[in-house]
C-alpha cells in the first residue's frame, strides 16, 4: 500500500526533533474513520504539501494540528515537546498560525484592524492599561498597527488598509487573511486551500510568497491546485480515505502508482483544470 513512506525530514538533519510532528493520530466520526493512524513530520523551514481526493481527511488533519479536533488516539509534538490537549488559543504562543478555507475576515473591521488582531501575540501592555487608555497601551497599539501595515505590504495589500473586507475583491481578501496569519510571525504556518478561487496570476504570486515565507517558517499547504503544490513543496504527504498513502518529494509522489490509483479519473483531471484557470 505504501511506497515512499518514512523518509527523513528534508531539513533539520538526522536526530533533530521535527518542528512539528503528528504521530499515529486516529479520528473517528461515529462509524467513519476520518484519520487512520496518520503521522506527519514537519522539518524547519520546509514547505510541506498535504493533498488527497475530497474526503481524504486533509481538513481533519489540519483541525487536529490546530486543536480544533481532539484526536481519539495519537500524539502531537512541537520541537520534540509533546502537546497534551492542544487548544486553539494556545497556537499563537506555540508560534503556529493558520488560515481558513475561504477567508474568515472580521466583516466590521478594516483590513488593517483585521491584521492587527492577528498581531495580538506582540502586545505587551496589560488588560487594565488598555482599559484605562494608558500611554503604554497607546504605544502598543501604534506598534501593532506598524507591524500590521508591513504584513499587508508583504502580501501586496498595503493600499487597502483602511477598507472593509466587503469592499474588497475576493483575491485581495485572501491576501489580507494571509497577512493576518503572517503578522504573528509564526514559525509554522498552516494554509488551508490558499489558492481556492484565485486566478493564475494571483496563484503565481502566491507561489513566490510561499517560497519567501519558507525562508523563515515551516509552511504546510493543504491544496487542490496541483501545479502550485508541485511547484512550491519540498515534500508532499498524500492522504486517501484517512490513511497516508505516500510521502516524498514532488517527483516521487507524482510517479507513485498508489497516488495515481487514488487520483485516477478524479483529481488528476481536476489538477489540470486548475492549471489553466
Amino acid at each position: 500500500m505504501t511506497s515512499a513512506v518514512h523518509q527523513p525530514p528534508a531539513a533539520g538533519g538526522p536526530g533533530a526533533a521535527p518542528a512539528f510532528a503528528v504521530e499515529d493520530v486516529t479520528v473517528r466520526f461515529g462509524g467513519l474513520t476520518a484519520l487512520d493512524a496518520v503521522s506527519l513530520e514537519l522539518g524547519a523551514r520546509e514547505v510541506h504539501g498535504v493533498i488527497g481526493p475530497n474526503g481524504a481527511g486533509k481538513t481533519t488533519l489540519l483541525n487536529v494540528c490546530c486543536g480544533f479536533q481532539r484526536p481519539d488516539s495519537g500524539t502531537l509534538s512541537r520541537a520534540g515537546r509533546p502537546l497534551a490537549a492542544l487548544a486553539p488559543h494556545q497556537l499563537v504562543d506555540l508560534g503556529i498560525a493558520r488560515t481558513l478555507q475561504g477567508v474568515g475576515l472580521f466583516r466590521g473591521l478594516t483590513a488593517l484592524e483585521n491584521v492587527m488582531v492577528g498581531a495580538d501575540r506582540h502586545r505587551r501592555a496589560g488588560f487594565l492599561a488598555a482599559l484605562l487608555g494608558l500611554p503604554r497601551a497607546e504605544a502598543d497599539r501604534r506598534a501593532l498597527a506598524e507591524r500590521a501595515r508591513s504584513a499587508l505590504a508583504e502580501v501586496g495589500a498595503a493600499d487597502v488598509a483602511d477598507r472593509l473586507p466587503a469592499a474588497l475583491p475576493y483575491p485581495v481578501r485572501k491576501r489580507v487573511a494571509l497577512a493576518r496569519a503572517l503578522v504573528a510571525e509564526p514559525e509554522i504556518l498552516f494554509l488551508d486551500e490558499p489558492a481556492g478561487g484565485l486566478g493564475s496570476d494571483d496563484i503565481d504570486e502566491l507561489a513566490g510568497l510561499i517560497r519567501r515565507l519558507a525562508e523563515r517558517a515551516t509552511v504546510v499547504l493543504v491544496e487542490h491546485h496541483m501545479d502550485l503544490v508541485m511547484a512550491v513543496c519540498d515534500r508532499i504527504t498524500v492522504l486517501d480515505f484517512g490513511r497516508v498513502i505516500a510521502v516524498g518529494d514532488p517527483a516521487a509522489v507524482q510517479d507513485d502508482p498508489a497516488v495515481a490509483a487514488a487520483y485516477l479519473g478524479e483529481e488528476s483531471a481536476r489538477g489540470d483544470e486548475g492549471g489553466t484557470a
Binding site: 490546530c66 486553539p88 488559543h89 497556537l91 499563537v92 504562543d93 498560525a97 493558520r98 481558513l100 474568515g104 472580521f106 466583516r107 466590521g108 473591521l109 484592524e113 483585521n114 488582531v117 492577528g118 495580538d120 501575540r121 493576518r180 504573528a184
Partner: peptide
Amino acid sequence: RASAFNGEVSRLLGV
C-alpha cells in the same frame, strides 16, 4: 470587536 464578530477566528489568532 473581533471577538464579537467571529469568536472562532479570534481564538485562532490568540485572542
